[in-house]
Simulated scan of single mutants.
Amino acid sequence: MKLKKYVLTIIFIASSAAVVSAQYKEPEKKDKVEIFRPEMTFDSLQAKKMLAKGSAVIKGVAYTKQKHPLGYSVPLSPRILANKMTVVLLPVTPYFEEWYKLRKDKENIRKKRFVYLSDQAYRYRLEAVTNSDGEFTFPEMRPGKYFLQGILDYTLKGKYNEYTGSGYNDYGGRTDYYQQKEYSKNIQDRIEEFVEVKENSEIVKVRLH
């Protein structure tokens, strides 16, 4: 019995060695995720200067429109106000402009193509939280161009008719039967807008949607 186990062990070791030294080895699948980054160096001093305190105010309302379950917009759909959503404000520096153009040209989430903003650039931001009416305020702003972004989560609810079967009468006529059912789907909208403060002490109003 011991001899049999010993022989099996030898065979297993020899088999493993054969796999390592095989003539044909299946390569590992390459990672299909593509990541793009701006080539320009981020200027932290410029960003810090743009976010220094001023006397202008940015006031806005954040909302989205209810979409079809397949993702496209629905005409005359009601507004969904951004309740307790964080609005991020970033200064539009040359680095940011390159990032935004790169994202517009290259990013495709379905194809796993992403454009990243550096951690250093993201640190130079301001944040505001909306109220239940979707309103938000950024006080003490300086003249300049800024980018606003928020992620709005909501649940899409609706009804549809589900086919349940067919019936036939004595004359050969067919009747299809349907049952009304409800559905719900979680939606996440990335809402963005550029805003420009042209002079001190002005109040700039914006709709973030």
Score class of each variant (00 low, 15 high):
residue 95 Y to G: 03
residue 59 K to A: 01
residue 111 K to F: 04
residue 87 V to L: 05
residue 53 K to V: 04
residue 126 L to E: 15
residue 48 K to P: 05
residue 48 K to C: 03
residue 114 F to C: 05
residue 61 V to R: 14
residue 100 Y to R: 10
residue 44 S to A: 14
residue 45 L to M: 14
residue 148 L to T: 12
residue 154 Y to D: 10
residue 136 F to P: 00
residue 93 T to Q: 01
residue 71 G to E: 08
residue 86 T to G: 00
residue 69 P to D: 13
residue 73 S to E: 10
residue 100 Y to Q: 07
residue 74 V to M: 14
residue 43 D to M: 08
residue 90 L to R: 12
residue 131 N to M: 08
residue 48 K to S: 15
residue 129 V to P: 00
residue 112 K to D: 05
residue 117 L to M: 15
residue 108 N to R: 09
residue 58 I to M: 06
residue 51 L to R: 13
residue 119 D to P: 05
residue 98 E to S: 03
residue 98 E to V: 06
residue 98 E to D: 01
residue 137 T to M: 08
residue 59 K to F: 02
residue 62 A to H: 09
residue 114 F to P: 11
residue 98 E to K: 01
residue 133 D to Q: 13
residue 85 M to K: 07
residue 99 W to P: 05
residue 44 S to K: 14
residue 147 F to I: 08
residue 113 R to N: 03
residue 68 H to V: 07
residue 100 Y to K: 08
residue 75 P to Y: 04
residue 48 K to M: 09
residue 84 K to F: 11
residue 144 G to Y: 03
residue 141 M to S: 05
residue 89 L to R: 04
residue 53 K to L: 08
residue 99 W to I: 08
residue 46 Q to G: 05
residue 96 F to T: 03
residue 79 R to I: 07
residue 111 K to Y: 04
residue 114 F to M: 07
residue 65 K to T: 14
residue 114 F to Y: 15
residue 130 T to W: 06
residue 70 L to E: 13
residue 97 E to R: 10
residue 78 P to C: 00
residue 88 V to R: 08
residue 55 S to G: 09
residue 138 F to L: 13
residue 132 S to L: 10
residue 133 D to L: 15
residue 48 K to V: 04
residue 77 S to A: 15
residue 152 L to Q: 11
residue 112 K to V: 00
residue 61 V to I: 13
residue 47 A to K: 04
residue 136 F to M: 10
residue 81 L to P: 02
residue 91 P to Y: 00
residue 68 H to E: 09
residue 80 I to R: 11
residue 128 A to K: 14
residue 116 Y to L: 15
residue 68 H to R: 10
residue 96 F to S: 02
residue 69 P to I: 14
residue 143 P to S: 09
residue 123 R to E: 13
residue 66 Q to E: 15
residue 104 K to P: 02
residue 151 I to F: 11
residue 96 F to G: 04
residue 69 P to M: 11
residue 74 V to P: 01
residue 119 D to C: 02
residue 82 A to Y: 03
residue 126 L to I: 04
residue 97 E to K: 14
residue 70 L to V: 12
residue 135 E to V: 10
residue 77 S to L: 10
residue 153 D to M: 03
residue 149 Q to W: 04
residue 128 A to Q: 00
residue 104 K to I: 07
residue 144 G to S: 04
residue 45 L to H: 12
residue 81 L to G: 05
residue 153 D to P: 01
residue 146 Y to E: 05
residue 147 F to D: 01
residue 106 K to S: 03
